[in-house]
Write a protein that binds this DNA or RNA. Structure first.
Lengths: 185, 185
DNA sequence: GTCTATACGGTGATAGAC
DNA sequence: GTCTATCACCGTATAGAC
């Protein structure tokens, strides 16, 4: 895969993360990614919708990978999940509360506006849930229980990100870490 | 307060709920609210930022009120919160997953972009947390514990809304209701 | 208070040269 | 593959009549 194409996707992820779909312009993406402007519609003939959908999928894949990495560091599901959420808290804090999940905003903005992007978001969230799910299964949770808990874990992390970004404090996310630790133990 | 002004705010709430800040235009607000276009900048001299900030506050106030209403129907905090979340699930489902919280999207979009709107979102979330907090205190939770739980309740509801809107199923929210019921009992 | 008209920048997108 | 020029459109915001 070409370098310019990859650069565009990565930059789009970053911009979506802090500005959302409607807040991010193609010109901005080109400028920020230092990619040749002419190549935008060459690599992404379907325009903004395609770029966003692919960026969302990319981001889902990357995040799921990071979750798996993080979770493998601890044996118990309880500590593993909690530690991961604390890492997210650090990330959000270090970015000056500009970052969070690239999915959250985009998912909300496009849920009923673009089917293509919506499907990408759905798939991306599925990847995150699967990553948590696997860990829970490994740790002995029954299948149905693991499914439910994985969904709840993702939900409360997303909510924690929202509250932390809004309040400009990592406290809500750290609190989510604490509650999930209790819940999973 | 004038009728046009109120109409504009209410319409803005609805549009923000499904489209977010950058996805909602002033022309759209005027058209949808059937308010005289000329009065937009008469009532809101600071433009879009002011309209949004006021709509967010309005929405926070209304939602907090609805939370209090809902919570007062049941005695135990556990059942009260759970029932409220189930109502939210119905609301999201009935709207065809177009609606959710007017705050979520706006809060994420503007966290580091508009101080005025960010402060409004912060205050609005504070109102929601307070509503839950009061109920928890009434039900005998210690102050520190009630604070933590209220934050976690709001976070997981917000996350549930995101997942439900994205997946076009009310399941995530219903699952949040179930988990919170256990957590608070 | 409300209306119409308009300024002006930025948006996504396309065409055609190279 | 990439560049430049250009398109039509929509965004917010303002001016001035009534």
């Amino acid at each position: 895969m070409s370098n310019a194409r990859e650069q565009i996707l990565q930059t789009t992820c970053t911009l979506l993360e802090k500005q959302g779909y409607h807040g991010t312009g193609l010109n901005e993406i080109v400028k920020e990614s230092h990619a040749p402007k002419g190549s935008l519609y060459y690599y992404f003939p379907d325009g903004k919708e395609q770029i966003t959908a692919e960026a969302v999928l990319q981001s889902g894949k990357d995040t799921a990978e990071r979750i798996r990495m993080g979770l493998s560091e601890s044996g118990s599901a309880s500590k593993a999940v909690s530690d991961f959420v604390l890492k997210v808290a650090d990330h959000v804090e270090l970015s000056g509360f500009a970052a969070g999940s690239p999915l959250t905003t985009v998912a909300m903005e496009t849920a009923t506006q673009s089917e293509r992007i919506n499907l990408a978001c759905r798939e991306a969230y599925g990847m995150l849930q699967s990553a948590f799910n696997e860990k829970l299964l490994e740790c002995g949770f029954a299948k149905a229980k693991a499914d439910e808990l994985a969904t709840f874990v993702v939900a409360s992390i997303e909510g924690g990100i929202i509250l932390s970004r809004t309040s400009h404090t990592a406290n809500p996310l750290r609190l989510v870490a604490k509650q999930l630790k209790v819940l999973l133990s």
